[in-house]
Design a binder for these strands. Structure first.
Lengths: 346, 346
DNA sequence: TTGTACGCGTTATCAA
DNA sequence: TTGATAACGCGTACAA
C-alpha cells in the first residue's frame, strides 16, 4: 500500500494525497474527504523509510547501552525506560545499541549509516573513544556522564563528587571518624568510569577536610560482592563505623554483611550514599541517600538531544544534577565501640 | 558522503562501487583497490535508509516492551538485554516500543510504517489486541507468552503451569499440607496475564491432586508488596507452611516478612517457585526454584523471528520451555507447629 | 570488466 | 486548486 495506490483510487495525483496529509498546501474539502476515505478504508500510513530518505532524518534516536553481558543496574534500566518513554512522547523511536568499545559493529552502524538522528551515550568513561567517533561523524549526541577533557560535548551527569563529599560530612557531623567508600566494580574503575572517579575525589576531599580516616574499596555490582566486600572491611578495619556508597546493586549485600556481623543500622553502624530511590527505600532501615533521578535524567537527555539535533552548532550545554540527600533512617551517631559490641553479639 | 561521491573520486561508475562492495559481480583487482582506498580514506558506509528502501527490508526488529511506567522486572530486563545482544550478533538493530495497549502511537508506527522487519512482543495477555493488529498487518512476529487461541502465532513461553504444579508436589512430598501461591500484580492478573493464569491452573491442579489446602494471592511486583502480602498470609493462615511464587520481584519482601515473623527458612517455612537465577541465588538461603532462562529465551526469540521473516508462511512454531527446578536450600520438611514456634519466638 | 538507466515511496518545486 | 516532475541514495537488470 503506497501513496500512488491511494492517489489512484481517489482519482487524484500523488502530490495531492501528500498535501492532504501534511496540510502544507490547501486541498479542497471534497478532494480531501475523498482521499481520507480511501486512506481510512485501506489503513494507509506513509512508509517511514521512504520518508526518511526524502527528509534526510529518521525520526529515530540511538541509545548506546553497556553490553548486556555486564548486567545493567537498576538505575541504568530505569534510565533506559525513561528515555524510551520520553522519546515516545514526542514520536521518536529508540534504537538500542549494546556496545562498550569503539569498534563495535552495532555502534558503527549507528554512527556511520545514518540510522539515527542523534545518540544518547550511556556509561561514558573518562577517556572514551566513542565520543571522538561521534564527533568526527558529526552526529549530534548527548552523554550520560562526561569525559575528562570535553567541554565540547553536551552532557548530563550527577555530581557524584559533591554528593559523596556531602555524605561524608554528614557522617562526620554524627561523630564518625573512620568511614569507607564502597565504589563500583574494578573493571569500571580501572576503565576510568567517571562516577567512580569523581566519587573518589569527593571522598578524599571530605576525609581530608574533616581529618578522618577513610578507605576506598571497589566492589562488583551485585549483592554477593557487596556482602564479601563489607565482610572484608569489617574484618580489616576494627574502627570502621560507617559506609558511603555509589554502588546501589551492592546494597542488599551490605545489608546482609552487617546483619550477619550483628551490627544494627543505624545504632551500631551507618550507611549512606547515592542510589536510586527504590534501592534506598528497600534498604532496612530506609537509606539516607541522594536519590538518583533516573526518570528525570532520561527526559532531560532526550530534550537536550532534540535541542542539539535542531541546532547542532550551538555551544554544548551541560547539566550537572545534584539531587537532595533524603534523610531517612540509616545514619546515626557513631558508636565508639563498634567492634566490642559486635564481638559481644557473637 | 554517498556512493556517487566515491565513484567520482575513484573515477568509476556508481554501480562499480556497489558491486565492489557487495561482490555480486567481479571487479578487477586494480579497480577494487582504487575504490577501497577512497572508501577507507573517506570512511564511507552505505546509507541504511536508502538501502532499506531499495531492499524492502530494514535490518531492524522491533521489541515491544511494557511501558516503563510499570517498572520492568529483572527477568524482563535480562530478556531485553539478551534480545539486543542476540540481534547485534547477527547485525540486526533493535527498535524499542514501550506500549501496553493497542492504540499506542509508538506501536502503530512500528506495525504500519514498515520501520521493522519483524516484532518481538513481550508480556502478552491471554486476549491481546496487539497480536491481531500484527497479524492483519502481515508483519512477522514472535510472542513471549501466548494468547488463548494460540495456534496461529509463533511464541516462546515458560511452562508456568507445569513448573508451579511441580513445585507444589515437591512441597507436598516434604509433608506440607497448606501452601500459598504468590502471584503477580492485580493489574496483570485481571488483565489476563498468561503466566499468572497458568501458574494458577498448575497450582489448583496440584492442590487437588494432593488433597492440600491452598490459597492464591496477587502481589505487586516489588519488595514492599511481597512483604505486606506475606505478613497478611501469616496473620490469616495459621497453618501455612510454604509458599510457591512466580513473583521474583517480591522475593526480598517475602524474605523480610518471614524473618520479621521469626520464621527460619527452610526449617520453619519453605519457599519455592519460578524466578530468574540471580533472584534465586540472592535469596537466603538460596531458593529452590525453576531458573527462568531469560538469556536463552532472548536468543531463541530472535532466531525464531529471523526464521519467520525468512519464511512467513510456514506453520507457526511454539517453544514451551520447562527449565529444571534447581534444588537449593529453601525448602524442607513441613513443621506441624509453625504458628506455635513463631509465637514462641516473640 | 564496466557504465547506463530505472525504481523504491515520498515530498518540494514548478507549471497549469 | 491541482498535476507533473525531479530528487533523496542505493542496488541491479541490462547494455556495451
Amino acid at each position: 500500500m503506497n501513496i500512488g495506490e491511494i492517489a489512484h483510487r481517489a482519482g487524484v495525483s500523488r502530490s495531492t494525497v501528500s498535501y492532504a496529509l501534511s496540510g502544507k498546501r490547501p486541498v479542497s474539502a471534497g478532494t480531501r474527504k475523498r482521499i481520507q476515505d480511501v486512506i481510512d478504508e485501506l489503513g494507509y500510513r506513509p512508509n517511514a523509510t521512504a520518508r526518511a530518505l526524502k527528509e534526510g532524518r529518521t525520526r529515530t534516536i540511538g541509545l548506546v547501552i553497556p553490553p548486556a553481558g555486564s548486567r545493567l543496574t537498576h538505575m541504568q534500566l530505569e534510565f533506559v525506560g525513561s528515555v524510551v518513554d520520553a522519546a515516545a512522547r514526542v514520536d521518536l523511536d529508540v534504537l538500542l545499541s549494546p556496545s562498550g568499545g569503539d569498534h563495535d559493529r552495532s555502534f558503527e552502524r549507528l554512527v556511520s549509516e545514518s540510522r539515527v538522528d542523534g545518540v544518547i551515550l550511556m556509561e561514558i568513561r573518562l577517556q572514551d573513544a566513542r565520543v571522538g567517533r561521534l564527533h568526527r561523524a558529526g552526529l549530534p549526541y548527548v552523554g550520560i556522564g562526561h569525559t575528562d577533557d570535553d567541554w565540547q560535548m553536551c552532557w548530563i551527569d550527577i555530581d557524584y563528587a559533591g554528593l559523596i563529599r556531602h555524605s561524608v560530612h554528614h557522617l562526620a557531623d554524627l561523630g564518625h571518624r573512620h568511614v569507607a567508600l564502597v565504589s563500583r566494580s574494578p573493571e569500571l574503575v580501572t576503565a576510568g568510569y567517571g562516577p567512580a572517579r569523581r566519587a573518589q575525589e569527593g571522598f578524599t576531599a571530605a576525609i581530608r577536610e574533616r581529618g578522618m580516616e577513610g578507605v576506598e574499596v571497589m566492589c562488583g555490582d551485585d549483592a554477593r560482592s557487596g556482602q564479601e566486600c563489607v565482610e572484608r572491611l569489617l574484618r580489616d578495619r576494627a574502627g570502621l563505623t560507617g559506609i558511603t556508597t555509589i554502588n546501589e546493586a551492592a546494597l542488599p549485600g551490605i545489608q546482609r554483611a552487617l546483619a550477619d556481623a550483628g551490627l544494627a543500622v543505624p545504632s551500631d553502624f551507618s550507611v549512606t550514599g547515592v542510589a536510586g530511590r527504590p534501592w534506598a527505600e528497600d534498604f532496612r532501615p530506609p537509606l539516607t541517600a541522594a536519590d538518583v533521578p533516573a526518570q528525570d535524567m532520561g527526559e532531560k537527555a532526550v530534550s537536550l538531544l532534540i535541542e542539539r539535533i535542531a541546532a547542532p552548532q550551538t555551544p554544548p550545554r551541560h547539566i550537572l544534577l545534584s539531587p537532595p540527600i533524603s534523610l531517612r533512617s540509616s545514619t546515626g551517631a557513631a558508636r565508639a565501640d563498634r567492634s566490642a559490641h559486635a564481638a559481644a553479639q557473637v
